[in-house]
Design a protein around this nucleic acid. Structure first.
Lengths: 129, 129
DNA sequence: CTTTACCTTCCCCTTGGGGGAGGCCCTATC
DNA sequence: GATAGGGCCTCCCCCAAGGGGAAGGTAAAG
């Protein structure tokens, strides 16, 4: 199939699929006469795999790694689990950070009257050292 | 003072301060003969303000807006509060999204033995439609 | 034969700067 | 006077992960 259908079936944009071909992540067959990319069922499966991993917040490089493990019939599941745990930890750290940001900001917002007057504790907090 | 000291005092890198000058966020005076940027105390205050707002996850454009409000002695605090609340909502949405990702991923990791065998529920989940 | 849809490559754009090259400016030291 | 050093300048390319669109080739349908 052509790139359009492969992209549709993988739930990705054509641009994205072409990008994955360019960076050597999912490399399709090439039609000699037309120059068109030709995708097979296995390629679509890989594209779906990568798409899903991306939605799980894995970076493109991590997806490449996961894809390598996915294609290796003899890989130890240990490696996949380690990568996943690392990602969970990253997400956790970001969660803590964002939560703290949210707390500070909503505390500031609560202390601000939000009326027509110029006095604003938010700006005061931002300008204070 | 020169850019190096201004950056130090604002807790930013020289690159960042120069960038803020280039995009018209904090514009210093210019020494005619040397071409050096000359920063005053008020510029340092603005740089600190922007740096702090950035740490609060405001985008550069939002910082520009906040800085405008900061410099306007007659601004209504309503505007600042609205911007802050919007940012809090964004952070909240991202928190929900990340939490859901974390739950899914840690559920997967928990279901994976993580041993030497190739069977891996994580990869199975990623490859399943 | 022509339209239309699909495909190709190529290049610039995004965020928020980082890294480094090549070249001034200024001061200190020899 | 020369030279070394540090700080500064502009200019250009780089990152992630593609998006947008131009210019042009190809295939299928009317």
């Amino acid at each position: 199939m052509q790139i359009g259908e492969a992209a549709r079936r993988a739930g990705l944009t054509v641009k994205t699929v072409r990008y994955y071909a360019n960076i050597g992540m999912v490399i399709p067959r090439q039609d000699e006469t037309s120059g068109y990319r030709i995708y097979g069922e296995d390629d679509v499966a890989k594209l779906q795999f990568v798409g899903k991993a991306r939605r799980f917040d894995f970076s493109v490089e991590e997806c490449r790694e996961l894809l390598g493990l996915y294609e290796d019939r003899n890989r130890p599941s240990r490696e996949v689990k380690a990568l996943t745990m690392k990602k969970v930890e990253e997400i956790d750290a970001r969660l803590v950070e964002l939560q703290s940001l949210k707390d500070e900001l909503s505390g500031l917002a609560a202390s601000c009257d939000g009326d027509h007057r110029p006095d604003c504790p938010i700006l005061n907090a931002l300008s204070g050292g």
